[in-house]
Structures are given as C-alpha cells and as structure tokens.
C-alpha cells in the first residue's frame, strides 16, 4: 500500500491535478490497483449552476482517464521515481487508445483503478486495464503508451516558447487575473 505522501514522492502532479488518493496493491513491473474518491467539492464542479442535476455532476470523462493514467504512472515510475520534472527523465504520454466509458461516475463513488503492464521496452511502457465502482466497470482502457524521454525535450520546447511568447503570455496573465477576479 502507498499512501498519499508516498504517491507525491513518485508523481510530480499536485492540486488540483493529483487524481490518485492511494495505491492498494503494487506488483512492480506487473500490475497495480489504486483508488480515487470522487466528492462534490472537486474544483471541476465549481462553475455548475445551482440547480445542476445528478447527470451534470458526472465526473469529467477525460479526468477519469487522467486519474487512471496517473495510477499507471505510479507503476511505470516505481522503479525510477522522478518527482522533479525538470531533471533526468520525464514520462510523457505517447498515446491512449480504445478507452470506453460505460457509465457516469458521481460524487460519492470511489474509483478502483486496475492497471496491467502489457509491455515494457527500453524506453517505452504500454498499459491496459479498467476502472470499477462498487465492482462494476465504469471505464475500460485498451492501451496507454508512455515514453520515457529526457526532460530536456520538454524544457527546450518550453524555453523556445517562453522566449518568443513571454510578453504575450505575461500580458494575457494580467488580463486573465483581472477577468478571474471580477467574475
């Protein structure tokens, strides 16, 4: 079992995008089971209208996938934990395929993510699995491919970007902060 503090030593993700609460079972290089509780106070529900229906409280499908993939990330990174994204290797998503949503997930549900390692190659890992609520499948994941890449691939792209767009981004940030503050 890995508690939240342990997960934070492995994954760089933080609030509001740390979507794995606990790892229940881990067989390195083979499989993992983890959980994530869904509550009505998730930040994604902040802008819902007052009279929102249950249906409208369905957990965003793409975040079900993100939560599942972060659990897979723990399995992938277990051998080389790298919470500092800027140094060493970083795990980048290559692709996600054949993901099927079986039914909506609502506040009060606890997601049980099941991850199986399909293939581990020198610089690439491929996972499959599903997510269950009360033993019933809510999400099916056909294939997720993650590639370990030198972090410099990201930082160089970012550096190139920052130099060119820094003024624009900074100006927008001011505008956005003012807009966020007022609405």
């Amino acid at each position: 079992m890995i508690t939240i503090s342990g997960i934070k030593r492995i994954l760089p993700h933080r609030y509001p995008m740390l979507l794995v609460d606990r790892v229940d079972e881990l067989v390195p290089g083979e499989r993992l089971t983890a959980r994530k509780a869904v509550t009505a106070n998730e930040p994604w529900y902040r802008e819902l209208s007052a009279g929102a229906t249950d249906e409208q409280h369905a957990y965003p499908p793409v975040l079900l996938v993100e939560s599942w993939c972060q659990a897979a990330g723990v399995l992938a990174a277990w051998d080389t934990p790298n919470p500092d994204v800027l140094a060493g290797q970083v795990m980048l998503f290559g692709s996600i395929s054949e993901v099927v949503f079986h039914r909506p997930v609502l506040p009060g549900d606890v997601l049980e993510h099941r991850i199986r390692l399909v293939r581990a190659l020198s610089d690439t890992v491929i996972f499959e699995g599903e997510a269950l609520v009360d033993g019933e499948p809510v999400l099916e994941v056909g294939r997720v491919v993650m590639a370990m890449r030198p972090a410099t691939e990201l930082t160089e792209a970012a550096a190139g970007h920052v130099v060119a767009d820094q003024a624009v981004a900074a100006a927008r940030a001011v505008v956005t902060d003012r807009a966020v503050a007022t609405n």
Binding site: L18, V65, L86, R172
Partner: peptide, 23 residues
C-alpha cells in the same frame, strides 16, 4: 489562458497543459 485552473498542479513551477485537457 495562463489562468487555467489545472496549471498550478500540472506541474508546480512548470506549467504544461495536460494532454487530457487538449482532448
């Protein structure tokens, strides 16, 4: 926008728009 709520946690000090958010 730089103010997107996901950026502070993805990742602290190194904002990258999550792939699932592009989706």
């Amino acid at each position: 926008e730089p103010g997107e709520q996901v950026f502070p946690g993805h990742y602290p000090g190194f904002p990258i728009f999550p792939g699932v958010c592009v989706v």
